[in-house]
């Protein structure tokens, strides 16, 4: 077929059958939505249009997204809105803690938009949120999924000092694709964030990769080795799904068995836990993945 007159675009594969997600009808979905709305919070589940949303909400699980729903970065894989965010809300930590309690969560995942506009990148609010959630009785474990804080060591240590059980920062993709996928971030910088978190010694360190952005298997293996070398103990691998036509196309859909093989590879490389699958997201069944480390 002649390609003349057409701009070259990476091929977008048709979505295979294993990427059809079953929606869950359960009153608990609306209850979870109501708890989030009542506390005027955002979830990355809704902001990113996550296909697992109804499944997790039916289990009364949600991943809170603090510091607003507008991001200062424009990563080419992400569906979260980019723009000029509002100033942080000082009472947000208490609202997250109250919502987590209302849902009965024993393990809470907190993430945020990237706030390059704030002097501390939002680290202070992150830390206060961890502290507020951990004040609950019986004690609640917190997993934070943070931006890179532009490599700011003090900001990172502010978050870690609040005592999250898991510090998560996603590497997202392989080194070669960084300029295209995360133009305002750096592969080495993200690895350094993870390495510093590990050295700080508070809780486990977690990271994740997306597949389907144009990476080769050799590059994925190399990224996994880099994560291990940085001291990362938990890794997630999932299918990249394009949130809107303005984002990068999906280059491939590895079969579920290929994800299983990546989990095996990760275990062989020494990760304590590896979650891999087409619908695996960074926070998908995060409590169960954490418990599988035996910590």
């Amino acid at each position: 077929m002649p390609l003349s007159g057409r701009r070259f675009q990476p091929k977008m594969e048709k979505r295979p059958a294993w990427l059809t997600k079953r929606l869950v009808f359960d009153p608990a979905v609306q209850e979870t939505e109501a708890v989030v709305a009542r506390h005027r919070l955002h979830t990355v589940c809704a902001a990113a249009g996550c296909p697992n949303r109804s499944e997790c909400f039916a289990r009364r699980v949600a991943t809170f997204m603090i510091l607003g729903d507008v991001c200062t970065r424009g990563c080419a894989f992400c569906g979260v809105r980019r723009g000029r965010p509002e100033p942080p809300a000082a009472d947000e930590p208490d609202r997250v803690a109250a919502a987590a309690a209302a849902l009965g969560l024993e393990y809470v995942v907190v993430t945020s938009v990237t706030r390059d506009d704030l002097p501390d990148g939002g680290a202070g609010l992150f830390a206060r949120t961890v502290t507020a959630i951990r004040a609950a009785r019986p004690p609640v474990r917190v997993e934070v999924l943070t931006p890179d804080f532009q490599g700011d060591r003090a900001a990172l240590e502010t978050v870690l000092s609040a005592g999250p059980a898991v510090f998560n920062h996603n590497l997202e993709t392989v080194a070669r694709l960084y300029p295209r996928v995360r133009p305002q971030a750096g592969y080495r910088r993200s690895l350094e964030v993870l390495r510093r978190a590990r050295r700080f010694g508070s809780g486990l360190v977690k990271s994740g990769l997306m597949l389907g952005l144009g990476e080769t298997d050799a590059e994925v293996e190399s990224a996994l080795a880099d994560l291990r070398e940085a001291g990362v103990e938990i890794v997630t691998l999932g299918q990249y799904l394009r949130p809107n036509p303005g984002c990068l196309p999906v280059t491939r859909h590895p079969r579920p068995e290929e994800f299983d093989a990546w989990a095996e590879t990760a275990k062989r490389l020494g990760f304590r836990a590896a979650a891999a699958g087409p619908f695996v997201r960074s926070s998908y069944y995060a409590a169960e993945v954490f418990r599988s480390t035996g910590t």
Partner: peptide, 11 residues
Amino acid sequence: LSTEKASFNLP
């Protein structure tokens, strides 16, 4: 059902 990001089965 199909959206830009994903496909869903509605029970």
